[in-house]
């Protein structure tokens, strides 16, 4: 099936407040989707619902499997999550112990675990970090390890929950390059839940949420044209999007261009 996540008529209340009311959403297999929304828009709740943490009304299908108490465990095997504060999600003080944690829980054999570690080290280039202590790592390295840990059980969906808000811009860009590379090699479905609109540049699809409602959804470039809606929701457009839109008014470009080099070449042929 084309959609790896399919949410139908989701309704959910927390403490008597309605968070989602007949909410619908589909995420395409192999896409890199940015779920953008201000704090309180429901994005983290959505993640918890997908993981089967709460009970809800409606239907959630992950890879064609309907989420229920029975299927919770199988569904969680298909999902890997990276959270915002890596030091709060490490379960051990040596990197390799943290990465193998999910595999140990699934009772993989030692040989299977060894193979998987070699695969992930090669994929993310973290060979040198394996036996280091977690608190000796830099912020960027910690997130890399967190990504490795999330990927260890070979999930089909990798979800980032505000995972980059603590990083400086340079490190963030480096990590996004790693993620792009990962996506190219494995075609894993990636979802980035964030409140920072600059993160949109790294995905092919954008979903904008506001107070539990789906406001915008579509290809990145198309969604970024909706400057009035962004302004209404109090979200800033990424610089390149703003620039493109304004240059469009002056007739200097005819579409949204997100890459700086591409823009420079378009303007000065």
């Amino acid at each position: 099936m084309r959609d790896i996540i399919s949410i139908k008529n989701l309704s959910f209340k927390y403490d008597k407040t309605s968070i989602f009311d007949k909410f619908n959403l589909n995420i395409k297999r192999g896409s890199v989707t940015t779920i953008l929304g201000a704090n309180g828009s429901g994005k983290t709740t959505l993640l918890k619902l997908i993981l089967g943490i709460y009970e809800f009304d409606g239907e959630i299908y992950i890879d064609n499997i309907l989420l229920s108490k029975k299927t919770k465990k199988d569904i969680r095997k298909k999902i890997g999550v990276v959270f915002d504060k890596p030091e709060n999600s490490f379960v051990s003080d040596i990197v390799i112990d943290d990465i193998v944690f999910s595999l140990e829980n699934l009772n993989y054999s030692k040989e299977e675990i060894e193979d998987r570690i070699n695969e992930i080290s090669k994929l993310l280039n973290i060979d040198k970090l394996l036996y280091k202590r977690v608190n000796e790592l830099s912020g960027g390295e910690k997130q890399l390890v967190a990504i490795a840990s999330a990927l260890s059980h070979n999930p089909e969906i990798l979800i980032f929950d505000e995972a980059f808000s603590m990083l400086d811009l340079y490190t963030k860009e480096k990590i996004f390059e790693v993620i792009k590379d990962l996506h190219k090699k494995t075609n894993i479905t990636i979802i980035n839940i964030t409140h920072s609109s600059n993160d949109c540049l790294y995905g092919d699809t954008i979903i904008v949420l506001d107070e539990g409602r789906l406001i915008l959804k579509g290809d990145t470039k198309r969604v970024l044209e909706e400057e009035k809606m962004f302004e209404k929701l109090g979200l800033e457009l990424p610089f390149m999007a703003s620039l493109s839109i304004k240059l469009k008014y002056y007739g200097l470009v005819d579409e949204i261009i997100l890459d700086m080099d591409e823009m420079v070449n378009k303007l000065w042929k």
Binding site: R76, K77, F101, E104, H153
Partner: peptide, 22 residues
């Protein structure tokens, strides 16, 4: 709270056996 979410996400469970890799 965060740790219990993480344990669920990392597939920790009380009932079955688990490997001890290292």
């Amino acid at each position: 709270d965060e740790l219990s979410l993480i344990m669920e996400v990392r597939l920790f469970n009380l009932k079955s056996d688990r490997t001890n890799y290292r």
